[in-house]
Amino acid sequence: MFEIPRIELGKCDGCGLCVSVCPSSALTLVNGMITFAKSGKCDWCTECEAVCSSGAISCPFEIVAESRAGLI
């Protein structure tokens, strides 16, 4: 399964800033709430996280060493 950013709908104020900055058009607003339109296209640029002032969206990184990355 392709990784997508984490969304906490309870924090989303529907401002749509994340939709506006997403270069992959992976995000959309449905009934004023953020959701993924084309989740497979997210390239983890983290721009949505950067602009979200309510902390509703986050892009956490897994941090691994090269040798271990190959095992995942």
């Binding site: 990784e3 983890w44 892009c59 956490p60 897994e62 941090i63 691994v64 060493a65 090269e66 990355a69």
Partner: peptide, 10 residues
């Protein structure tokens, strides 16, 4: 290397 959601120390 930035590998999507992964930071790989190469």
């Amino acid at each position: 290397r930035l590998d999507h959601h992964r930071i790989v120390v190469i």
